[in-house]
Nucleic acid binder design. Structure first.
Lengths: 123, 123
DNA sequence: CGCTTGTTGAGATCGTATTATCATTTCAGT
DNA sequence: ACTGAAATGATAATACGATCTCAACAAGCG
């Protein structure tokens, strides 16, 4: 049976409040302000179980370990800041993807990542 | 000083002839047909030095170790076949990326990956 | 409140990709 | 061909993220 622990509550909370995909380390740091003493093992365990029960979605970015965001948002992509290494959500989706697919290939999905500077780092 | 060895020649050759990004294991398998006895250590060493001298470019895809392709092609993206796990090059680039960038963010570059079935696996 | 059992935290352990080690080989200049 | 130095290959060692172990803890029930 699944228990409602402080740790699990803190982890869910920081991800839902952040509005952007967080890595395990980011989750740990943020959740420790609500739940001192929280360990990294619990973060990994909880992220895994939240993904399995569908509450979280793994976000895979090129050359990076996975991050996690709340499930249920509509289709979107991400912006990866090269300066602070944070990842932000983007609205919308580019046009003409089908046009890029050569004959014979069957297109099932796509991933797009924009790179640059976030507002805080662009200054 | 840099020597022209059979191993290095075989590795450059398979990458240039493949026309798609190859991972270290793929390079090893393909190059061994030209250079029997080739070891994985030499593949890693050579890939690294070819990247450093600018002959190869690292291709990072979500959730995958890097692959390598010849430098000098014009801007392009990739198609990742979910069945055979091979990666292919795509021509062209989607429209409207700038439109996706929220105010305050400075866009420097982007990566796009299409997923699906390649011609050989779609059948 | 007290018991049962799932959960936690610290550290050990693992898995995979990559790099270092080192004796041997082989390239390249003479 | 001879020689010195760089390159190679088998294997050990590393890096890193993620998972496992297990004693201590705490959620939830009666």
């Amino acid at each position: 049976m699944k228990r409602d622990t402080q740790q699990r509550r803190a982890i869910r909370r920081v991800i839902e409040e952040s509005g952007r995909p967080l890595g395990p380390k980011e989750v740990l740091d943020a959740a420790q302000t609500h739940c001192p003493g929280l360990g990294i093992a619990t973060v990994y365990r909880t992220l895994k179980s939240l993904v399995e029960e569908g509450a979280l979605t793994q976000v895979e970015l090129p050359g990076e370990p996975p991050r996690y965001e709340a499930t249920g948002k509509h289709h979107h992509h991400h912006f990866h800041c090269r300066a602070c290494d944070r990842v932000f959500e983007l609205e919308g989706c580019p046009e003409g993807l089908r046009r890029l697919t050569p004959p014979g290939f069957s297109l099932e999905s796509h991933e797009l990542v924009l790179y640059g500077r976030c507002p805080g780092c662009a200054a």
